[in-house]
Write a protein that binds this DNA or RNA. Structure first.
Lengths: 333, 333
DNA sequence: AGCCTATTTGTTATCGATATCATTGCGTGT
DNA sequence: ACACGCAATGATATCGATAACAAATAGGCT
């Protein structure tokens, strides 16, 4: 910066101003400095600026998996809104492990982000302590935690699954199965399972048709195997709710290979409104939880909170998921 | 850090040492300091350390899209290897726009990463200048650029597609179509198209069956529409090569809806070895370019380059993609 | 014990941008 | 021409960790 200042015949302070939005500096001086900087190949040093100002412009974002279109959409929503406002997303993924989340939280906090976005409301004790001490806005997403650490942008996985089961019942299903995990590492999958159980009880139906698809991530391949197991164990099943569309598509593939007609022999539903749900033949009935909107809303909260700095009340935004009807549950009587 | 030093009865320098791997410090003192730090809720300030040492521990990674399982795998490969060695990935996506890449390059360089990983070899003039001046290791991935800016870990999209066409020809296909884009914004898609054209010429076949699937990202939905167009325009086609598996699956879905049998009426192949390729019914013949390995190798290069610091020769690793046979091109005569 | 070496700990200056306050310049109205 | 007020620019100290060097302590040997 000193070199640029000399080249432009001004002080370093003026050069500093030339690279900031708000600064009071004449347009002429600024362009002169920018020119000199370009000529010298100077690139602004954000590490020094962040250090001095205590504002890094980083927003730490922690998701379970990077290889998941739903979480990717949330990151896109966050990133698109934040990057337009001069923020940079610091992304990390936990592979659905709480200890890994704790590590990431510590690593990220040492980078002094201006806010942090987490997935879900389950964190290790130590992670919670670190977060509380950090004194930055916290946003928990994708869930409605009972005791939120900060702001929340989420939805009730349980209720969404209840709605889905309700739809299956409406379509005449009675012997409904659930494919998904029961792992503590996937609280959202678990909530959906709970929603399934609660809905079945509500309708007075037998809720014992449960196929454990294993540890997260539960993807197409696990869904396919789980469907094999289901057909083996409960051959009289007339509808299947899956923990995700990927899982459901795997189940669909097994059905196709076995010559089982969907929805004729068996109705099928997924969760998440992945692209595969609309493109699959038959298209899959699913739940759209608007993952992109989750990210955008979380970003908005961060922008507002950091604008009116000071102790802000905890925002709580509950997204209302929507049922997307596909042909996989359409029975034209 | 001063507070921790006082609490532990040592100097700040000793506290600094307690938080570093290599430092010479007695185990007893270290644990005493760590304890004090935990008690006080102290979190190491990486912004200050990075500023002082000129080593941020950041590796900037720029990919076209975050919502793509192939690129996600490369990021995972990178991230997994790098995070084990104390590095942190700074991820950005361009939406397949070179200008956005330029912006990201500038933003990332201002964060002083220790290395930068790019997708492909096409960059704006200004981006190239910035990168050259940055004096950090550069790795270009997913392509084999003619004039690389630094290290390369990639493969020939053209050759891979040639191999795929060769397979289709072996299986008896003659009227082969290609579904994909021809956009400058997707050099990899373009190379695959070129590979298709070259292979068709090599086999003395008519290469005019080209369906433009639009701008990237080309996903399932575009693939489905493109297949509609193909069936309309060239109804006598006997095999289709798609620019990606997502595109191919879209095409497959259209075929299924139209009652066209794959591979009976039409052979179909994709690219990328996405999970959908193995789970789809029929499974899709595809090309595995080992995206995770690309990331891992790129990470290795960075680790080695930064270890023996100094001007290192440009590494060039060419991945050999493999043909994965699926039932979508299996004709049992 | 006394000496020597290796290990551990302490002191001081420093990285590059910016907050803060001081100063200069410039246009406007009378 | 002068005073006034606002805009533009400059000087200096500072953020928190660490490099570089200096000092102190511990441990091993005769």
């Amino acid at each position: 910066m000193k070199d640029v200042a000399d080249a432009a015949g001004v002080s370093v302070m003026t050069v500093s101003r030339a690279f900031r939005e708000d600064a009071s500096i004449s347009a002429k001086t600024r362009s002169k400095i920018r020119e000199a900087a370009d000529r010298l190949g100077y690139v602004f040093d954000n590490t020094a600026a962040s250090f001095r100002t205590k504002r890094t412009g980083f927003v730490a974002v922690i998701i379970p998996s990077i290889n998941n279109a739903n979480f990717a959409e949330t990151v896109r929503g966050l990133s698109d809104v934040l990057s337009q406002n001069g923020y940079q997303v610091l992304l990390g993924y936990t592979n659905y492990k709480a200890e890994r989340e704790e590590e990431l939280v510590e690593q990220f906090l040492s980078r002094r982000p201006d806010a942090i976005v987490l997935t879900g409301g389950a964190h290790t004790e130590r992670a919670q302590n670190l977060l509380r001490n950090a004194a930055i806005p916290i946003v928990e997403t994708w869930d409605m935690p009972t005791f939120p650490m900060g702001h929340v942008v989420g939805f009730s996985n349980e209720n969404a699954m209840k709605a889905l089961v309700g739809h299956l019942v409406t379509k005449g299903a009675k012997r409904i199965a659930f494919i998904g995990g029961d792992s503590v590492e996937d609280p959202r999958g678990r909530s959906r399972r709970l929603g399934f159980l609660a809905a079945m009880e509500h309708f007075g139906l037998d809720a014992s048709r449960l196929i454990d698809a294993g540890e997260p991530p539960i993807s197409m391949t696990e869904g396919a195997s789980a469907m094999e197991a289901l057909l083996e164990t409960f051959p009289d099943t007339d509808a299947v709710a899956c923990v995700s569309d990927l899982c459901a598509f795997g189940a669909l593939s097994t059905a196709m290979r076995r010559g089982i007609t969907i929805p004729g022999d068996l109705m099928l539903a997924g969760f998440g409104a992945y692209e595969i749900a609309s493109v699959a033949v038959p298209s899959l009935t699913t739940i759209d939880a608007f993952p992109r909107a989750i990210g955008e809303q979380a970003a908005q909260i961060i922008l507002e909170t950091n604008a009116n700095s000071g102790p802000v009340s905890k925002t709580k935004i509950e997204i209302e998921p929507e049922l997307r009807l596909g042909r996989s549950t359409r029975r034209d009587q």
